[in-house]
Design a binder for these strands. Structure first.
Ligand SMILES: NC(=O)c1ccc[n+]([C@@H]2O[C@H](COP(=O)([O-])OP(=O)(O)OC[C@H]3O[C@@H](n4cnc5c(N)ncnc54)[C@H](O)[C@@H]3O)[C@@H](O)[C@H]2O)c1
Ligand SMILES: NC(=O)c1ccc[n+]([C@@H]2O[C@H](COP(=O)([O-])OP(=O)(O)OC[C@H]3O[C@@H](n4cnc5c(N)ncnc54)[C@H](O)[C@@H]3O)[C@@H](O)[C@H]2O)c1
Lengths: 205, 205
DNA sequence: AATAAAATGTGAAAACTGTAACAATAAAAT
DNA sequence: ATTTTATTGTTACAGTTTTCACATTTTATT
């Protein structure tokens, strides 16, 4: 229905709308959203139009209605269970993150090969990878956060996919090889920093 | 010289090339890179061509030469100092991250309003924000990682910019308003997860 | 030496994405 | 009631990005 670039913009609009709502606003205009998101007003209207979202001429868009439609599009209506693999520095921050609920996601379990990590100090139970299939089946998990060291990321992702995972949010700085039906989103801090530096022109050739 | 979409692809190529190099390879072909990065072979050749990188017809590209050119483009040649603001869950993971050196970046200091964080338990000194200007000037810092709570992110970013920061890697789930000369890259875990779910079609409307 | 094969490099075409112009409509002002 | 104003929604256009087709070069084979 909507493609990747549109999806990204819709998510931006959603963030802006949530902010407007928090400020007590009831309606908004393509302009206001444009200022907030740096997307042109026309394009915003086009995106909404294409998603079947209608505003009122001269009256703007109803914020609750917009958020409702976006909720439908992004499927926040059904709760989605997720898991995390690797409870090191970054993994243990992510397992404690509290915003999952806001998007109707539910962190149900964590996995680590290190038995020392399998304690009750975390907000979810921590298992050995042997229990992966069981957890995935029990909680109908499709998406996993991967936060294991670089050298084991490929192997671990293979194992995740083998056991039914179809979406991976990968924090390891490697391009994972996965089958076609699996989607990987990479979060790569170094790459973001490098691009930042490149574009602010810190670089004097 | 290269635009945003190209920059992203060049970074992908670089990751693949580093991997090839680690595997002991000396040269590579647009095909091989294509398989590794999921970018079409023609586009890869075009990108290289546009960056003035030449291969040998039938002989492919020299990996070291490619990496050298990319290094020039991304300016890994000059060391860049960076700082981090906010040492909570995610901030303290990031301050311990060890890959900065690999891209010739140097984490020189951390900042937190909580005095309890200002201990020697971290790999860099932790200061109050009062010391920001001093650190920025001393170490010629242009880029900061922002890992403070959502509600203080906008205000903190304003303060960073006021003191000379021109690039922000923002982990808070807000669209920061910054002057034109400042660039923000957002890392938003929830948004990545949502898009993952949307695209794997977990969502049954 | 001649031919075949495997790669790069590139101009033209196609596909995709965003912008501009403006008609349609609703609200506000007169 | 009429006119003005502000805003959406859409069609045509412009710009950007990617792919296609194929010429060119180098290496390998016969
Ligand atoms: N620390 C950061 O700020 C940061 C930032 C961005 C990306 N990353 C990346 O995230 C990954 C993890 O980084 P980290 O700093 O948390 O590392 P870490 O070494 O602190 O943690 C890795 C964890 O994964 C576990 N583990 C190792 N192999 C495993 C396996 N096969 N299955 C399950 N668990 C396994 C280890 O026991 C450990 O708990 C790395 O790839 C790193 O490059 C880290
Ligand atoms: N925890 C995660 O895994 C995670 C993941 C993605 C994004 N985030 C985002 O990162 C940010 C930090 O998350 P967290 O979980 O680390 O929160 P946290 O509450 O654990 O840490 C926030 C830290 O910032 C400090 N701080 C607060 N205001 C400050 C200010 N004005 N200047 C300097 N320091 C200040 C606090 O003292 C604290 O140490 C949040 O915006 C969160 O949404 C967190």
């Amino acid at each position: 229905m909507v493609n990747l670039v549109q999806t990204k913009r819709l998510q931006k609009y959603r963030m802006a709308l949530l902010r407007f709502k928090k400020m007590g606003l009831k309606k908004t205009f393509s302009h206001s959203l444009s200022e907030e998101t740096s997307v042109s007003a026309v394009l915003i209207r086009k995106d909404f139009s294409q998603c079947g979202i209608r505003g009122k001429r001269r009256g703007g868009y109803d914020i609750d209605l917009l958020l409702g439609e976006l909720k439908k599009i992004f499927g926040h209506e059904k709760e989605q269970n997720i898991i995390i693999v690797g409870l090191g520095n970054i993994g243990s921050a992510l397992v404690k993150y509290e915003d999952y609920r806001q998007s109707n996601m539910n962190m149900v379990a964590a996995f680590d090969i290190d038995p020392a990590k399998r304690t009750r100090r975390y907000p979810v139970p921590v298992y050995s990878l042997e229990n992966l299939r069981e957890v995935i089946d029990t909680f109908d998990v499709s998406v996993a956060i991967l936060a294991v060291p670089e050298f084991s990321a490929q192997e671990t992702s293979r194992y995740l996919v083998e056991n039914g995972i179809r979406g991976i949010l990968n924090f390891a700085p490697v391009l994972l090889k996965v089958p076609d039906h699996v989607l990987v989103n990479n979060v790569n801090v170094m790459i973001e920093l490098e691009r930042l530096m490149y574009h602010i022109g810190v670089i004097q050739d």
